[in-house]
């Protein structure tokens, strides 16, 4: 039994979640502050992967980063980076595809915090950064955890987009969801069942943990 696809999937989910956390926090904060036409367009683009067929996104990424032309060719020649049929490509596709799962809960939680919390912090002589780290972020912990877990779990389950840009290269781009499909194609139902069960179990434990944590967080100790 080859467990490499499981490890590759977990590695991809970890890298994607960390990258999205770094990108998502400042972007969600920016989006949560006021509305403008530009922000609406950016938010629409970020939300697109929720409704777009993964194969469509994968197809455009494949075209954009093909080493034969445009950006892909330039990246290959200048930095020797190839996104197509490589782990980097999977990470790039996963970051784009899972972005709404990281940004949505964080942005929504920041918007729900009273504006007076930030104002109180500013009036004490604190900067935006200090206010974000010391006041805003600690008060959106449940949503932050939800965003992290949803992003991680969603990346575990990606199929179409990673298949389009990464293909099915063992130890490089063959993640668990592709291994399931591949095993079924080869009539190896035992392997398909093992991969599927592991993915199911990890996802179930993660999502259940979030519900338990958030219930504990939201419950008033005075009740």
């Amino acid at each position: 039994m080859d467990f490499a696809p499981i490890w590759l999937t977990l590695k991809l989910a970890c890298v994607t979640t960390l990258l999205l956390l770094a990108i998502g926090l400042p972007v969600a904060w920016w989006l949560s502050k006021g509305r403008s036409f530009f922000k609406i367009i950016i938010e629409a683009i970020i939300t697109m992967p929720l409704v777009l067929p993964p194969s469509v996104l994968g197809f455009y990424l494949l075209l954009a980063f093909s080493p034969q032309q445009g950006v892909g060719k330039w990246l290959q020649q200048t930095f020797n980076i190839q996104f197509v049929f490589s782990f980097q490509g999977l990470v790039l596709a996963s970051v784009i595809y899972s972005m709404p799962f990281m940004l949505g809960p964080i942005k929504s939680a920041l918007q729900q915090l009273p504006v007076s919390l930030s104002q109180a912090s500013y009036s004490l002589g604190k900067s935006r950064w200090q206010t974000f780290i010391r006041v805003l972020l600690p008060n959106i912990k449940p949503s932050l955890l939800t965003a992290i877990v949803l992003t991680f779990a969603h990346t575990l389950g990606e199929f179409g987009v990673v298949l389009m840009i990464g293909g099915n290269i063992p130890n490089v781009t063959r993640v668990a969801s592709i291994a399931v499909y591949d095993s079924v194609e080869q009539m190896d139902y035992h392997a398909a069942n093992v991969y599927s069960f592991i993915l199911f179990a990890i996802t179930f434990v993660l999502v259940t943990s979030v519900f338990i944590f958030n219930k504990y967080q939201l419950k008033s100790p005075l009740e």
């Binding site: 009273p114 007076s116 919390l117 104002q119 109180a120 912090s121 500013y122 009036s123 004490l124 002589g125 604190k126 900067s127 006041v135 008060n139």
Partner: peptide
């Protein structure tokens, strides 16, 4: 507001 540093008591308290 950071430079003005006026003490402000909010109607909704705005406690952290």
């Amino acid at each position: 507001p950071k430079k003005r540093m006026a003490g402000f008591v909010f109607q909704d308290y705005a406690l952290f």
